[in-house]
Design a protein around this nucleic acid. Sequence first.
DNA 1: CTGAAAGCGCTTACAG
DNA 2: CTGAAAGCGCTTACAG
Lengths: 335, 335
Amino acid sequence: MGKITMKDVARMAEVSMSTVSRVLNNPESVHAEKRQRVLKVIEAENYHPNALARGLVYKRTQSLGVLLPDISNGYVAEVIRGMEDTANSHGHSLILCNTDMNRERMLKYLRVLKEKQVDGIIFMSEPVTGELNDLFTELQLPVVLASTQSLEYNLPSVKVDDEQAAYDAAVYLIEKGHRKIGMISGPTFDVISGATRYYGFQRAVNEKLGSRADGMVEFGHYRFEDGYIAMKRLYGRKPDITAVFAASDEMAVGAITYLREKGMRVPGDVSVMGYDNTKFASMYTPKLTTVAQPMYEIGSTAVEKMIDRLDGEVSGDERTYLSHKIVERESVAEI
Amino acid sequence: MGKITMKDVARMAEVSMSTVSRVLNNPESVHAEKRQRVLKVIEAENYHPNALARGLVYKRTQSLGVLLPDISNGYVAEVIRGMEDTANSHGHSLILCNTDMNRERMLKYLRVLKEKQVDGIIFMSEPVTGELNDLFTELQLPVVLASTQSLEYNLPSVKVDDEQAAYDAAVYLIEKGHRKIGMISGPTFDVISGATRYYGFQRAVNEKLGSRADGMVEFGHYRFEDGYIAMKRLYGRKPDITAVFAASDEMAVGAITYLREKGMRVPGDVSVMGYDNTKFASMYTPKLTTVAQPMYEIGSTAVEKMIDRLDGEVSGDERTYLSHKIVERESVAEI
DNA sequence: CTGAAAGCGCTTACAG
DNA sequence: CTGAAAGCGCTTACAG
């Protein structure tokens, strides 16, 4: 016995296919008795409509493609969780694509997603280049950016205001009495989370301390090792530092690891503040004081924005900023 | 200008649709000159074949559904990464489904995946109940289990030998000179990773120390807080304990957190060993000695197994065990 | 309220 | 090597 189709159901219920289709899509429009007959057969035969056939005529698949750098990254995984919950509750599915920031791989995915007729694409891989933007319009696929944005193109996006968040973090440290504050920044060529957080930090130091943070900044790629190395350089140059703001929790932990190896206590001798509030942050010792991004909400909001657009309800603002907050825990001391 | 279809390409290249279809699927079979003409139009018009239409006739979608408990879990995310890479390199896509171990939600997903005509399902949510097994066969969808398995049903699966891994961990601790060894186990009703690791631990204690681990075991649900609480109870009852084996890295870290609050040093006073080797483990201080599961490989092997089956190459063994290993770091001391 | 027919965009025998 | 036609499993006007 092969798969049972709508035609089979129609035959067994002694109605036309149109009627079966109607009880599925617009039950009210069919006579109660016939409807029951059809429903009974559907149940008995365990009939499942074929979404491919349906998608072919609807020109809608209820599937969204999501391009992300790497799902094994805790931050990314949390955002995806928010996306998936929201997509699911709206009857959509998510097709996962790890780009590894690799151009070839991304192009291939984009082609596949197009062929599979996804309704839209959620993009969180990286900043949007001109080439990429052209591709999006060429593909004629709606795009929403999550946790990234496009400065040049007017693409809808959802993220935190990184500049302001970093500013707030620095101010927090300053209000705790710190004056010699270092930063472990992301790379400045990363215009989304590198340069922005760097500028926010600088602005705070400028405004509140009236100084430039000369020599107080090191750079890394957000990973543990980067934080370790950056801290080493920073400490080597400025041993009188009393606080460090890292652009990621991982780098913060890397920095703490280095400091401890040097016999410094955190936060006793040096305070360290992170960014992201990954799960990790509250399990570490000392529990990390950090800038919390609403990861789950970034994901769910991005999907909501996508679905609104698919439904024709374009919300006015393209760029949505979700609010960050500072989570006070144990890694920053008042002095 | 609407989407361009194969029919349009045929018209523009002045050939039949059959020919266009052939240059796409079996280029050699069409005359070189015509082939070029078609290719040119495809390129110029940026034509993308519709995978829904294709899937409708092929009865293959090159899509796999993956049911998992929660993607924001670091262990799960790493396994998924392995799946996605492998799926991608075989031209398959992954549809992500977070079940949260919720039955309703799982059933809904299963229905959607069936309707979307996925070629198969990778299941890593939980042990397979009778009801679930019935559903799988009813749905007529091939299933491969990742990081779980079915004792009752002969479903293909990929995982580590948990009993042996826990045994090895306990033996490792014993060989380091420990005699008073506690365990923080998963719940015994979890027959996959709870009971198995618990038995492995017991077997080692039995064989090597000739004793039963009476009162030396506490239970938790693998999370940080569970580890903390379990350690508290364990320590309250057995303050002379010198080593603890936790069934997850998170619980290990929770245990360490408690011990430190009590002024104990790890591993100076008490050694702690974890399980999983999540990223976290090497960033923590002290870096965690732990049982490494090959998470990425579990994912990629599961997908390979699925694809082999879809291609009709059923490998002999249903149950694949990947090897674990003990990663020595800093949280266990020799005494 | 209901059914016959056309159409969604492909592929695959079947002829030639 | 190539094209016309049927078919994959649905939905949607259009009549009735």
